[in-house]
Simulated scan of single mutants.
Amino acid sequence: MLAVLLIREILRALPLLENGQPGAVTDRTAHHPVPQLRNLIIVACHAVFTGFDYTKPEAEESWHLLDYQRVAGQAHAFVQHIQVGVVEAAQDPSALLLFSGGQTRKAAGPRSEAEGYWLVAEAAGWWGNGAVRDRIFTEEHARDSLENLLFSICRFFELTGHWPQHILVVGYELKQHRYVNLHRAAAKWPAERFHYLGTPAVNQGALEGEAGTIEAFRQDPYGCHGVLLEKKEARDPFAVGPYLAARCPAMAPLLSYCGRSTFPGRLPWSEQ
């Protein structure tokens, strides 16, 4: 009798198929909330919002800023990126907007950059574009600009069940070359289906550091070695980790690739 009861409890704990019979664990990505969306807009985040009033995002003290970011107008630049992304999404009814950025700063606590951007937009009433709210999501694992792109493509697939037809990245003008010529190429994304919308950088530190970052990605296009790896590790103080390849099986070989030349395999978007 004890054995029968034990078996009954095990069967009761198993997930059920549609016909009510025990089955395999359902893939968490099997549910795609917005399958009708076709294009991807990425706002690459640059800081964690640490304030308590999301209606005051242009106050510098509302953000956890690095030393080189402590310049007048820096908070406004973040808000500008958020607003540009929202407006672009409002103008394209088939677009999904992702704020991309992880829990990157220990002193800021376990808050993601992406969540802060989303809440700022929510507090601003989406700048009069409230209808876009259901098309705006977050990607909360990225630790650098390449991951902003790769993880956002994976997140888009999770949310829609297919790959984007077109990608638009919103960020600083100075990073356009990095995204368009290095990261896009590393992802083997077709150039004609990729665009970048940049705003002016407000701090000299970012301008001075970009040349070095570009050279580092030229030598290490997937950010797996040396200074680029060290930066990623430093930007993961809560051990959240990268996007697991299992979340996007078709991207698994690319997400785990660490070569110094372009990924040699085929990717699903090359077949679209």
Rank of each mutant, 00 (worst) to 15 (best):
L5T: 09
L5V: 05
L6E: 02
I7R: 13
E9L: 15
L11N: 09
L11G: 04
L11S: 05
A13C: 08
L14T: 10
L14I: 02
L14A: 15
L16V: 11
L16Y: 13
L16D: 09
L16Q: 15
L17S: 15
L17I: 07
E18C: 06
G20H: 08
Q21H: 10
Q21N: 13
P22I: 09
P22M: 08
G23N: 14
A24K: 14
A24V: 13
T26A: 12
T26C: 09
D27T: 06
D27P: 06
R28K: 12
R28N: 00
T29G: 12
T29K: 06
A30G: 10
H31Q: 13
H31L: 08
P33L: 04
V34H: 12
P35R: 07
P35G: 08
L37T: 10
R38G: 03
R38D: 02
N39R: 14
L40D: 10
I42E: 15
I42A: 05
I42V: 14
I42K: 04
A44D: 01
C45V: 00
C45K: 03
H46Q: 03
H46C: 13
A47P: 02
A47K: 02
V48Q: 03
T50M: 10
T50F: 01
T50E: 03
F52T: 05
F52D: 10
F52V: 01
F52W: 03
Y54P: 01
T55Q: 04
K56C: 00
K56T: 07
K56G: 02
P57W: 00
E58M: 07
E58H: 05
E58D: 15
A59L: 11
A59S: 12
E60P: 06
E60G: 00
E60V: 02
E60Q: 11
S62N: 12
S62R: 07
W63P: 05
W63E: 06
